[in-house]
Structure formats: C-alpha cells, structure tokens
Amino acid sequence: MKFLVSRYNPDSDAAPYMQEFEVEVPRGMMLRDALLDIKRQDESFSFRHSCGEGVCGSDGVNVNGTNKLACITPVSELKEPIEVRPFPGRPIIRDLVVDMTQFYQQYKAVKPWVVRNDPMPEQEILQSPQERDKLDGLYECILCGCCSTSCPSFWWNPEKFHGPQALLTAWRFLADTRDQATDERLDALEGPYKLFRCHTIMNCVEVCPKGLNPTKAIGHIKALMLKNSV
C-alpha cells in the first residue's frame, strides 16, 4: 500500500514535506507496524512508540486528517494513500515527533492529585462503590494528546487554554469524593481562557482512543461552577 509520511529535520529542511513509501500490508497489520517497516526502509525516519497495545499513549499521529494511536489503528481501515503527519499545532522536533511540553504544562496546572485539607487518616480513605463509579470514564485517560491537539481552541491558545485532556482531569478530581479542594479548583478555572475557551466543538470526543468524553466533563465543570455561584 502507498504511504505518504511527513518528514522534517529542523537542521536541514526549511519546511516539512511528504515522502512516499510502499509497504506490504499483511492481514491484521497495525499502522505502527507499517511505520516500523518504513523505518526499516529509511532508518532516519523518526516516530515515538512503546507499548504497542494502546496503553502508553506515546504513538499518537495524524492519519488521513484524524488523530489516532498508530498501534491500535488497523491499516485495512485506512483509505489509500495513507497520509501520516505529526499532531497538528505542535512544534515539530523531527518527522512525526512533536514537542508536547505545553500539553503537559496544562495537565500540571490542574493539580492532578487528590488534595486533602483534613489530616490524613491512618488507613485508606474509603469510597462507596457508587462514589467510585463517578471516576469511570475519567481515570482511564492515558495522556496521549489526541484530543487536545485536535481541538481548535487549543491550537489558538495552547499556553492559556487548558485543553480537553487537562479539563477532563480537572473534572476527574472535582468528581472524586476524597478531594477537598473543590472551591480552589473551580476558582482556578475562572476567567475567559482556561476553561471557557471551549466552544463545545467536540473534536476531542471524536478522536479519543479510549472512548472518553472530555466535552461532557467540561459541561459538568460548568454546571458545578454555575451551581456553586448562585
């Protein structure tokens, strides 16, 4: 099958360009295997990957216009020629490898840990099964970045808008009954940028390889904010 992959070496190229490769595709081949085959043909070709089973979140790429994890994307599902580009909107380090620093900064900014003001108990802080259920659809995020790098609001304001990933995480801790920083978390999200740049475009929902729904989480945050302010 015909592949067009984006190449860019900042030391020698003025701009990224597409290079053509032919890859023989056996049944059940995932896109990551095809990229590895291309690397065998040209060892200077660079991309990130690790686990090979949709768990580590390191091989997110833009395939035929959509962000996907290469390792769980069957080549047979893709239209030929298969165009593979780095995540849109991110500075390119080399070929498909991008700089995700801002994405991690936004994650860090929402304090992704349980905050306790009470003294820590001797044992675990128990939750009922119902309380635990509230974290389903939130804790599974693998920080692959498919969502935030497909979000137009994140393209325009990546240094100020948290983006869907970090907002999903913000809700994950707001929804956690063990967390005691609800007011602080909500106050930190006020203002036109961090949360309210989201215009419910829902690109994030469409691409999440884990089937998570950041838009819904963002809606929950807005509703809680509204409830706590009237």
Binding site: E190, G191, P192, L195, F196, K222, M225, L226, S229
Partner: peptide, 9 residues
C-alpha cells in the same frame, strides 16, 4: 464577567 458569567449570559 469574563468567564462563567459571560457563558451564562
């Protein structure tokens, strides 16, 4: 009015 209020209005 920049964040929540603008959104609610």
């Amino acid at each position: 009015a920049s964040g929540l209020k603008a959104w609610a209005i």
